[in-house]
Amino acid sequence: MRANEIKDLIIKGDAAGTAWGVEEMLAAGLAVDDIIQGILVSAMNVVGERFREGQIFVPEMLIAARAMKAGLKILEPLILQAGRKYLGKVVIGTVKGDLHDIGKNLVGTMLQGAGWDVVDLGVDVAPEKFLKAVKEQKPAAIGLSALLSTTMGSMKTVLGLLEQEGLRSQVKVLVGGAPVSEKYATEIGADGYAPDAGTAVHVFARYAS
């Protein structure tokens, strides 16, 4: 199987085929990093792009993400064995009062695929919980997701809390979700914003350790 064929399997959302293909690549002697960057990440870039352009939709994006994860799972033991470093740790979650998680999950998976150690706090996450995670997990960045105009204010609360606890300079805060904009991100003093999961990978990449 060639690299391009595996990429196609990911794009099509074929998890079993992807896992099998990744094993074959390993057997052929390809380096773990090359498989991640050259195949997994590159396939998800295509998926992100097609989603942005309206060629594919949420279900296709989700099954592609699942296939990518299946490939990543094969590599996991080797990643740890080789002492390969993650890009860093990120904590993500949907803010308090908000149950929308599809976008947040996609962002998490894409980041995972790109080589981040992702800690997902789930939905309806209180500001205090983000604070606790920052203290305990010491992530390079946190990603806040909000889909409701009524809950996006909670992002500002999280930023204020970090400031208050003297932790603001230690962690980058990225925000996203349909009602959130670049302008809003700047207004509340966040470090970054992305309109979709593909772009999120690029924005987070700035803060890799």
């Binding site: 959302g13 949420v58 279900p59 989700l62 099954i63 699942r66 998680d101 599809i102 999950n105």
Partner: peptide, 10 residues
């Protein structure tokens, strides 16, 4: 659940 149905279609 939304995530579930989005996968169920396939």
């Amino acid at each position: 659940g939304m995530n579930e149905i989005m996968l169920d279609v396939y």
